[in-house]
Design a protein around this nucleic acid. Structure first.
Lengths: 198, 198
DNA sequence: TGCAAAAATATGACCGGTCGTCTATAAAAA
DNA sequence: TTTTTATAGACGACCGGTCATATTTTTGCA
């Protein structure tokens, strides 16, 4: 196997392992020692594969958003379903992942790190802003479709309503973590349906 | 001056100083050394007034929510204004505080620490959950009033809609921090008015 | 009121441990 | 042998927390 591929594989392995720690414990709550320990890699190796903890975090975020997109893209692109229903299915899928895989405890890594680090690391902040913008653009396309089909009020600005929904989703995840329950998840889906996608 | 009062005054002084650090840099981003340094107090004194960093954080949260309530209570209780308008004024006030005093950077201390620490400190989690529930109860009363005046759809559950609004507000603050702009604040107010308080 | 005993508060050196990072060197590849 | 890749562990700084001791304030009694 090529050397560069091997190098990339080990890089990704470290990212996968460390990503979970950052997601769960945050930037300042996760140490480089924690990361190399769960990956069973010598401490010195970390700085062979990454410039710094900050650099690692940026790359872990890239990986997180790539995995997130891979897990939900098809729901949004399923043309056999109406645009409005596609939007609902998309959030329902994200909600179910929170319930099933994450036990209502981890929330969204992007929002977690963004909330913790935006003021303190410009590189991390910009990384998250860019990824979230990409997600919103996808959603805006579907909203515009839904408006053409008159499933969503066509007087409302697509960018703004998507930003509002995403913000409501983000905040709901905080309440989910605080209450350690699925209540906020269901409440979000209910008002998404009755208030916006009606 | 009574001994206990003096003791309380110094305690509050430390809380006021440390509260800002926790608010801005988070729990794991703030060290006990940071706190005693900004308060210009010897390290040893910290552990005379507080059991631990966690204990300090719980008391700082108590103080944060007390100050927050003091700053916004009158808007909510102003009977010369319609219930629906009172709700809007309440959030507008909170939004303006974010813009003017906090430069769109700090967000809500409760949400910040709640998001960071809920899974890792039960004491902190419970403290935040209780304070937020108290805030929501206040809001629910006004929503019920608004429903009786038919300013808000009376078929919607007051507890649930308040939870949804508060969640949207929380999440919007994350976006505000990430984008370092007031855009999300205005967007939130717009949809609060057009979607819920119409 | 004067004053010593006692209680409350102040102080910073110090503890073991961990932090993020770097450098000297070993192992592997060329 | 030279160059590249990878590792081990040392580095100084800092972490949350403790401690013996110094200082101040309050108290009880003469």
């Amino acid at each position: 196997m090529s050397k560069t591929i091997k190098h990339q594989e080990k890089t990704d392995f470290l990212l996968d392992k460390g990503l979970e720690l950052l997601w769960c414990k945050g930037y300042n709550g996760t140490s480089v020692n924690d990361i190399v320990k769960v990956a069973d890699v010598p401490k010195g190796s970390f700085y062979f594969y990454f410039d710094s903890k900050e650099d690692f975090t940026v790359k872990a975020l890239d990986r997180y958003f790539a995995l997130k997109r891979a897990a939900t893209a098809e729901v949004l692109e399923d043309r056999s379903v109406s645009p409005s229903q596609r939007l609902y299915n998309y959030y329902e899928k994200r909600v179910n992942i929170m319930k099933d895989q994450l036990n209502c405890t981890w929330g969204c890594m992007g929002a977690n790190i963004g909330n913790e680090m935006s003021e303190h690391s410009e590189k991390i902040r910009v990384t998250i802003v860019n990824h979230e913008e990409k997600i919103r653009r996808q959603l805006v396309d579907v909203v515009i479709e839904a408006q053409m089909d008159e499933e969503i009020d066509h007087t409302v600005d697509p960018d703004n309503i998507v930003a509002f929904i995403e913000d409501a989703y983000k905040g709901m995840l905080i309440s989910m973590k605080e209450t350690q329950s699925a209540g906020p998840l269901d409440n979000f889906l209910f008002f998404l349906k009755t208030l916006i996608l009606k």
